[in-house]
């Protein structure tokens, strides 16, 4: 039986003088809600307020878990749900590599606290394809050869899906402006713009 435990804020520095709390590594893996209610140790009780319950849907699957309040949505996805498509570039809102859709809107998951997402519906790059059938924008990235190293690509694609839904694809200039929240170190911008154009049905 899975024991529920607080999800640590992965990659976070713990300030000196504070001992890292012990966490039991058994959270919900992709695909199902965890069993309820057990807090790991009595010692946790005093700090329980620094954790929170969250129940959300990710790519159609429901997850209920307890997270350290500091945990970002990005860390919840990558470290605890095994969804490593969303990338951690800057962890500061400045690169877009971590872009996901929350309730249909594109956001940066690195600045989103997981504990605030009760009832939210999250879509990551892993949730875009329909089985083996790629999302039209995924296909367009292949057709247009819109990547080199690929690190920014999941964020570009999810952001592009948001951009197309918002209708900001009237011209290449408009796409460039509304995709500017996604940095590409490899400089694939012209082809990324063409891929968004293709998927938006503009060519």
């Amino acid at each position: 039986m899975p024991i529920e435990s607080p999800v640590p804020a992965a990659g976070e520095e713990y300030p000196a003088g504070l001992s890292r709390r012990t966490f039991i590594a058994a959270t919900a893996a992709a695909g199902g809600a965890t069993a309820s209610g057990l807090l790991a140790e009595p010692a946790e009780a005093a700090e329980a307020a620094e954790n929170g319950r969250v129940s959300l849907t990710v790519n159609g699957a429901r997850h209920a878990t307890t997270v350290d309040n500091r945990t970002s949505l990005l860390d919840l996805l990558r470290e605890h749900l095994g969804l490593t498509g969303s990338k951690k570039g800057c962890n500061a809102g400045a690169c877009g590599a971590c872009t996901v859709l929350v309730d249909g809107r594109r956001v940066v998951s690195c600045l989103t606290l997981a504990v605030r997402l009760n009832g939210a519906d999250v879509t990551t790059v892993e949730g875009l394809a329909d089985g083996d059938l790629l999302h039209p924008l995924q296909q367009a990235f292949i057709d247009q050869d819109a990547l080199q190293c690929g690190f920014c690509t999941p964020g570009q694609i999810v952001s592009g899906v948001g951009c197309i839904r918002e209708g900001h694809t009237g011209s290449r200039e408009e796409i460039r402006e509304w995709m500017s929240g996604n940095i590409c170190r490899c400089g694939c911008y012209p082809k990324i713009v063409r891929a968004v154009e293709q998927a938006a049905g503009r060519k």
């Binding site: 809102g93 877009g96 594109r106 940066v108 600045l111 948001g162 900001h168 509304w178 500017s180 929240g181």
Partner: peptide, 9 residues
């Protein structure tokens, strides 16, 4: 200001 993602938040 900022980016489309940040403005959504």
């Amino acid at each position: 200001s900022a980016s489309a993602q940040l403005r959504n938040m």
